[in-house]
């Protein structure tokens, strides 16, 4: 008795409250700027967290960081999954934006795995419409020149 196994779908439509830190960061993305948060020790966290993960410290100070940065880690995906941000081969990247001390997890639109390396400069490609969401950063792309 061959045949496809039937399936069912579970759906959870959430509306999430963002709070003062995540909300401000995503508001920044909507306005096409990237905000980080500076800890007392001077470490700039991007994306910002509500407390310093090393010290637990709150009351941090906002700072704006660059739209470009350096690839600190990557993984090349030859066959994207349906829900991945890009529908062609791409790299997951850890990007340290200029002025930040931590890495942002996002995707890099590059021609091939050979075109990606640790230390390369990349820049944000903004979505054509921004709305206050991680996908306002459509992806990163290699910095020209």
């Amino acid at each position: 008795m061959a045949g496809a196994v039937p399936t069912y779908k579970l759906e959870f439509p959430y509306k999430r409250s963002l709070g003062p830190i995540v909300g401000a960061f995503l508001t920044g993305l909507r306005d096409r700027q990237v905000l980080g948060i500076r800890s007392a020790a001077g470490r700039v966290l991007v994306p910002p967290l509500e407390f310093d993960p090393e010290t637990g410290e709150e009351n941090l100070e906002w700072t704006r960081v660059g739209e470009a940065g350096v690839v600190r880690g990557f993984s090349w995906v030859e066959e994207p999954l349906p829900k991945h941000p890009l529908d062609r081969p791409f790299a997951w990247v850890l990007v340290q934006l200029d002025g930040a001390d931590t890495n942002l997890v996002h995707v890099l639109d590059a021609d091939s795995r050979a075109a990606v390396e640790i230390g390369m400069r990349v820049r944000i490609r903004w979505a054509s419409e921004t709305r206050g969401h991680m996908s306002d950063i459509a992806c990163f792309e290699p910095e020209a020149g």
């Binding site: 779908k9 579970l10 759906e11 439509p13 999430r16 995503l26």
Partner: peptide, 15 residues
């Protein structure tokens, strides 16, 4: 300011 975010989680399971 952006204060909410929509999130649609849609998962398929075998029956």
């Amino acid at each position: 300011p952006v204060s909410f975010m929509q999130q649609m989680v849609s998962l398929e399971y075998k029956l």
